[in-house]
Nucleic acid binder design. Structure first.
Lengths: 190, 190
DNA sequence: TTAGGCATGTAACCCGTTACATGATTTG
DNA sequence: CAAATCATGTAACGGGTTACATGCCTAA
């Protein structure tokens, strides 16, 4: 039962709450998980097929609603719940992050400081957009408190995002300041 | 010239400073880049071969020193420097992070809070170890100031690590506190 | 009517890890 | 001598993205 496939666990987790289609899974990930997870259709659909074969989920031919294209809804089986709870107890694997922005920064003495400043500004802009979304989520959650039994857990993931993104933001500001102090003659090439 | 292969850029960057072997590249990444980058031998050696073919690096048959096994040293070519500077000016691609710990947390109402508390403790321990290394690096750097012309850039990557890991650490403490407050009857299953 | 969102799926490709094989040299 | 470390390499595999193909429905 050694599941390296995290997509599989994501799907199992979502289906623990309610049956969903592949399309809906993707939408949920894109909207609520985007700051710590991502999935593509090219991954989701084949994995769903495999999971059906393995008997951890089953298709609940949930209607051809109003002559629309067939929507394949899936629900979790007891085997699926067992697999999910097993995975939850397994230790978290060491994540292998790769911050392209830090790699560029590390070697950025090959180009003018302005280049790197612009990269960091862009990074800061993108992450500030996400920070605004955090605030929205938080309000949404405090309004619907106790509606979901995983409410505290959701808040905690949010808290993670808020703290880390705040750290990103502060770093961006400081890094830009530091880069501005670098004299052009210290460069290697342009 | 659309390089998606980041390993290639890492190698180019390192070779800008001095010629290196595949083994040395791996050691540098493991020791100094580990908190924001990772590489495996199975990736490095084939990429080096490909880069040689493409003429961005060349092998400088750096001696069979004292009858030892042949060490293949590589140095960068002008084409390699051009490729690297081009990549540095290209925008940073949106990173797709996947925090397994947050995915587990999000769905952790399926198991007892103690399970998740232990995962977070482990996460905190691992990252605190790295935080100690940051302090060591910093001292090392302040001693050798001005020895390398990318000194400020290195310090900035370090600053990033320090800020983000501090955010991790604070979150861990708060999250564990919050999890302790969850009453067992709020769970779904065990 | 056409653009865009809903919905599913596949093929090609790349990226990267793991595991293994090989062999030399150093150190206990 | 055995174990660890230095050093290079390959094969197998899996994970994941991108791009494409298909088709339906709704709203401008």
């Amino acid at each position: 039962m050694k599941t390296k496939n995290k997509t599989r666990n994501l799907i199992l987790g979502l289906l623990c709450e309610s049956p969903l289609s592949g399309y809906e899974i993707k939408k949920i990930v894109d909207s609520r998980f985007s700051f710590f997870w991502s999935e593509s259709f090219g991954q989701i659909y084949p994995v769903l097929e495999k999971m059906k074969e393995d008997g951890v989920i089953l298709e609940t031919e949930s209607a051809n609603t109003s002559g629309r294209r067939k929507i394949r809804k899936y629900e979790i089986t007891p085997e699926g719940i067992a697999e999910m709870t097993f995975w939850l107890t397994e230790p978290v694997e060491k994540e292998t992050v790769r911050y392209e922005i830090l790699l560029k920064l590390f070697f950025s003495n090959l180009v003018s400081p302005e280049v790197m400043i612009e990269h960091i500004r862009e990074f800061q802009r993108n992450h500030r957009k996400q920070q605004l979304l955090f605030d929205g989520f938080e309000k949404e959650l405090t309004n619907t408190i106790h509606l979901h039994n995983n409410h505290p857990q959701v808040l905690m993931t949010l808290l993670f995002g808020q703290k880390v993104y705040k750290a990103y933001d502060e770093w961006c500001t400081e890094a830009i300041d530091l880069l501005r102090k670098i004299k052009p003659e210290q460069e290697c090439a342009t």
